[in-house]
Design a protein around this nucleic acid. Structure first.
Lengths: 148, 148
DNA sequence: GCGATATAATAGCAATTGCTACTAACTGCA
DNA sequence: TGCAGTTAGTAGCAATTGCTATTATATCGC
């Protein structure tokens, strides 16, 4: 059936992305780029490879995303002193401002999405989804171990 | 913050798609194509435009997806007797078999994803996500009315 | 130290998607 | 009937993504 939790989650996530992109079209960055910046803020100084893994795109895709974000003045590549093949990634000054400015938008979107849910229900929802994510994430790791 | 329900839902949905695509790579169809077939099964005889709206892609994108599925023997285009511009879409014989065969895979995936959740928790999760989807879906409609 | 293997990042090519513009056909109103 | 405006679907072009191969550098074993 299509009324599975997987189908439903995907459907809802799509609506989120849609709404997000519609509201941030002016800012010039997409949901995926925003995701990249959010992760980068938490892991400044990370290399391209691990960041690609975090946001789950191929390294070459991340490389080109960084090209664009660098050109837009949102990300900086700095040479890794311990490995001349690698780059270390940092948020450029513009990025913090942008993320802060977008914060209001994302907060509003999340509020709209959970309208009518009590605080307890929101917590419950987050906790349940988190458990599903953990299950899927664990499966992913198991699969990689099998492959190895 | 990134610990919002929107972020979390997207993250989880991505893991679902990833797992889905990994398991159905042999079958030759993607998660998006599967989604199309699921909707089409529920709405046989639908035109391309409305189906594009259902699965939330542009009409031209759907047109090309149908091209490929038609070539793969999974979908049929039949002329609409009441409008010579339009096509009516139907599942081809191969599609039902394929969907039935994939059923086991999607069931297993959903079971793994909700492992450790009680039946009550699963229902609760589905109900909460459904409410979020309804909120976002409603917003979408409101926006269109504003635009009109 | 030196050659073989592994790793970080990137270039070429093919596939997919969406924006815009277009054709064909339908609808409404004079 | 006949013309203006709308609608269904598709083609051209540009942007994005991923697979494969490639370059530069690092690391391991001798």
């Amino acid at each position: 059936m299509s009324d599975t939790i997987g189908f439903l989650l995907n459907d809802t996530a799509r609506l989120f992305r849609r709404a997000f992109n519609a509201r941030t079209r002016d800012s010039g960055i997409t949901a995926l780029q925003w995701r990249l910046l959010i992760y980068l803020r938490r892991h400044e100084g990370i290399r391209q490879g691990p960041l690609a893994e975090l946001i789950e795109v191929e390294p070459i895709t991340l490389s080109r995303m960084i090209d664009r974000l660098e050109e837009a003045g949102l990300v900086e590549r700095r040479a890794d002193p311990s490995d001349r093949r690698a780059w270390l990634l940092y948020l450029a000054p513009g990025a913090d401002e942008l993320l802060t400015a977008m914060r209001a938008t994302t907060d509003a979107l999340n509020a709209e999405a959970t309208e009518g849910l009590s605080a307890a229900e929101r917590d419950q929802l987050a906790a349940l989804v988190e458990r599903v994510r953990a299950n899927l994430s664990r499966r992913e790791c198991l699969k990689e171990e099998e492959a190895a």
